[in-house]
């Protein structure tokens, strides 16, 4: 009985972890869906999201400390999140505009190399601007434990799961039921044909980057609830794992990215609980190799051209 409870507890922890992966993974998958480009700078946008939440909080006078009391009132935390989303959206749009758009017809390899270059550039800019020493995000909520049947989760993790669910519902609705969402799906099939419908393809691409980056910013602020330590390299591993999650789910598919993220988070947690965290770090790559061997198009991947 104990073992089952332990397992359920790890699954619950994994949901929170996986939520963060999922939030980042949708950015990879949406950009890939439209441009067939792996935006390797996306993990850095997540990192920037955390800092864009952190710095205004500090400017407003909220100090990090180890106490349990919240230092940032909820409405301010919400505003900080919106601010980080807007700032990251702008950065995502600028990166596409300045780095990827000029190379749009230059072939995939050039774009890939550029993406890696932008990623390294952003890491190093962050090192210069934010400094290498870690920063602690001021506490945003009063930390409590919540008992849910057999499992017990800190309210921070529940908040991460809840906000992610809300964001995903909003994204699904937008892509599925609005004309703009239909235009995004149309662009992911053929930009040329979409332009024949009167769709301004460049605007849709900018929007795709903006949405993906804003979701990554939310992930950056949310993870600070759970792991408040910020460093300029904090985007590296979550970025890489979210990319693996997107491939797991079938890159190009939004439901796939969500499923891949959750799956990765849960398996990591369970493996971490059973075998120790040393092994959990390898889970992403083992899963990646497995899926590439068994079902290279990913869980939700289609053989056809439907991507977003």
């Amino acid at each position: 009985m104990l073992a089952v409870n332990e397992l359920l507890q790890q699954v619950a922890n994994g949901l929170a972890k996986g939520s963060v992966y999922a939030l980042i993974a949708v950015g990879y998958t949406m950009v890939y869906g439209v441009l067939e480009l792996i935006n390797f700078a996306h993990g850095e946008v997540f990192m920037l999201g955390a800092y864009f939440g952190y710095w205004p909080a500090r400017w407003l006078g909220y100090m990090p400390d180890s106490g349990e009391k919240p230092q940032v009132p909820a409405p301010v935390a919400l505003l900080l999140t919106f601010g980080a989303m807007a700032a990251c959206a702008l950065i995502g749009v600028l990166v596409e505009r300045l780095a990827y758009r000029p190379l749009r017809n230059a072939g995939r390899l050039s774009a890939l190399i550029t993406a890696i270059g932008i990623s390294v550039l952003m890491q190093n800019l962050a090192l210069v601007v934010f400094h290498a020493d870690s920063k602690d995000f001021p506490r945003m909520i009063d930390q409590q434990s919540v008992v849910l049947g057999p499992v017990e989760l800190p309210n921070t993790k529940l908040l991460i799961i809840g906000v992610t669910a809300l964001m995903m519902a909003g994204l699904f609705w937008m892509v599925r039921y609005t004309r703009t969402g239909a235009a995004m799906r149309a662009c992911s099939h053929s930009m040329k044909t979409a332009s024949l419908m009167g769709v301004n393809v460049n605007r849709i691409i900018s929007l795709t980057f903006a949405i993906g980056s804003a979701m990554a910013a939310v992930a950056g602020v949310l993870i600070s609830l759970d792991q408040p330590r910020l460093t300029p390299l904090m985007g590296l591993m979550p970025g890489l794992k979210a990319f693996v999650a997107a491939v797991l789910g079938g890159i190009g598919s939004i439901p796939g990215a969500v499923a891949g993220g959750i799956l990765l988070g849960v398996v990591e947690s369970v493996v971490g609980g059973v075998a120790g965290t040393t092994y959990s770090e390898a889970v992403a790559f083992v899963l990646l190799i497995l899926i590439l061997l068994v079902r290279p198009s990913g869980l939700f991947g289609k053989s056809g051209r439907e991507k977003v």
Binding site: A186, S188, H189, K192, L196, K307
Partner: peptide, 10 residues
């Protein structure tokens, strides 16, 4: 367009 160019995923 030639080849109809409908969106199969819509």
């Amino acid at each position: 367009p030639e080849g109809r160019g409908i969106f199969p995923n819509l």
